[in-house]
Amino acid sequence: MEKIGEGVEHLLHELSVLTLSGHEVHAGEFVLTNYMFFLLIALVVTFLFFMIGVRKVSLVPESRLGGAIETGVEFVRDSLCIETMGPEGRKYVPFVGTIFFFVLFNNLIGLIPGSKPGTGTMGTTVTWAVVVFIVYNAIGIKRHGVWGYAKSFWPKGVPGPIAAVVALLEVVSHLVRPLTLSVRLYANMYAGHVVLGIFSILGALLLEASGVMKVIAVLPVMLQIVLYALEVFVAVIQAYIFAILTSVYIGGAIHTH
């Protein structure tokens, strides 16, 4: 029992923000942390993926990579942007697409054993969520003017006092959007890695034990494989949710009612 506790403590220490050499980061210090390192790797991978993929552009993509990119970008254009914003969604495909693919690569790189997801820390996800918050509000203000956008929070055809309460609720729901957007992504990635880690600890401890315990170790190892597949699914779904909420927020700012 104590060994499990020790293992979990070690796991949580490994998953916290550390410098590359494994020291703790002190407040106010500027160093390259483990999460920043994998964030940069994801950045390079995303960049190379697209640069190599679109080196030779043709109407019908010749390479497999080109085909994959075309499918991905078409998915962003049709299922994310046009579905939620209407025909004008085309204008925002670059923004939503960048977010979708960068989050996706971050999440997937984090699943390679030994690496961490760049999205597994609050710093990354809060920054992106705040960027999304500023962008969609700026789009709304640019389109309707400051007064027109502010008026869209006030419901029509509702008596005064109730309308005030509804408007207040609307403002609060807008203000918590960056919080929920960032915590959702971070919590999913972090919790997923903790679960995978705990099952590895359980499997390793049972394999070390003697006799019949070694046989029982099959269970956590098998569950680990299933959970890993689930985590791959979660990585893709979370990137999708982050991107679709971004486009829903932009769509809401365009079509105010």
Partner: peptide, 13 residues
């Protein structure tokens, strides 16, 4: 499916 994911996200929040 699109609407479902939006509703899921709201419940999850």
């Amino acid at each position: 499916q699109t609407v479902m994911f939006i509703a899921l996200a709201l419940a999850e929040a």
